[in-house]
């Protein structure tokens, strides 16, 4: 068979390749700048590949961003685990233990999803102050856990809707209670739900900047804040923030690369099952 490319295809692919280039230009720019020495960086040669490679940018950036990176890892992992676990329990109740008014409460939960970060910034600040946890990581973790509950509850409620209610009833007749059913039957079936919810939460929390800068003191700043400060001065050695950007962006990219296929599968689950 001869491979024939119709004119329509040709236009389509040309457009797609163009889009790819447009999207990859900043990535290219970031990488080559990160690999240059500060004195090699100027507007004239900004597009050129470096003649000599400077891996030192990364260690320099790490020296500055190291503590922020640690903060971000602690913050993101803790908040992701807590908010997905709570979301899973909520979803379990909303889908399998419906009670009078549970639909209304669920709807109210959903409103939480549409509240922008900025709107609750001041009240959040006041609450954390009142709780005496303002300024440190625990406060920021609490904020992200609470803010993440609506979306994780929604993901798990929809995910658990596919688990036949007969399983729950059957376990009830077998004598199992609320938590035993959750631990022995629902939780072991939840892996796809956890993948979807935790990728979502991981990305959201890792990339978040505003709360990070407003709710933590300098020593507890997450990497997004650290990165901004790295680029914030007047005369900047551009290779360092670029290397920092790569370091800050990498975890999210890696999470997508390794869990991405489960993410799509999890999102589609139920849509394709009978």
């Amino acid at each position: 068979m001869k491979t024939q490319i119709s004119p329509g295809r040709l236009i389509l692919y040309s457009l797609l390749i163009l889009m790819v280039i447009v999207y990859l230009i900043p990535v290219y720019m970031t990488i080559i700048t990160a690999l240059k020495f500060p004195e090699d960086i100027n507007l004239l040669t900004s597009w050129d590949f470096p003649d000599r490679i400077n891996w030192g940018s990364f260690s320099q950036a790490y020296d500055k961003l190291g503590p922020n990176l640690t903060n971000s890892i602690i913050l993101t992992i803790t908040a992701t685990i807590l908010s997905t676990l709570l979301g899973s329990l909520n979803g379990y109740v909303f889908s399998k233990w419906k009670f009078r008014g549970s639909e209304t409460i669920f709807t109210l939960f959903l409103f939480g999803m549409f509240i922008p970060y900025q709107i609750i910034l001041i009240p959040l600040f006041q609450v954390l102050r009142a709780l005496n946890i303002y300024g440190g990581l625990p406060g920021l973790i609490l904020a992200h856990v609470v803010y993440g509950i609506p979306i994780t509850s929604l993901i798990f409620r929809n995910f658990y809707a596919q688990i036949p209610t007969g399983l729950i009833k059957s376990a009830q007749l077998d004598g199992a209670g609320f938590f035993r059913i959750y631990c022995r039957i629902v939780f072991p079936l939840s892996a796809p739900g956890f993948v979807v919810a935790s990728i979502w939460q991981f990305t959201q929390i890792w990339n978040e900047f505003l709360w990070g800068i407003c709710l933590t003191r300098h020593t507890s700043n997450p990497i997004t804040v650290g990165l901004a400060q790295l680029a914030g001065g007047q005369a900047v050695n551009w290779n360092m923030p670029m290397a920092g950007s790569i370091m800050a962006g990498l975890p999210v990219v890696l999470v997508y690369i390794f869990l991405g296929k489960y993410f799509i599968r999890g999102l589609l689950e139920g849509a394709i099952k009978e």
Binding site: P164, G166, S170, A171, L173, L189
Partner: peptide, 25 residues
């Protein structure tokens, strides 16, 4: 004891566990 329309077997457990779950509880 009840037998359900879609069997309601616990998918994550072996058949042995399915049968013994109620007794263990």
């Amino acid at each position: 004891a009840m037998v359900f329309q879609n069997y309601a077997l616990y998918p994550n457990m072996s058949i042995r566990k399915n049968i013994s779950f109620g007794l263990e509880t």
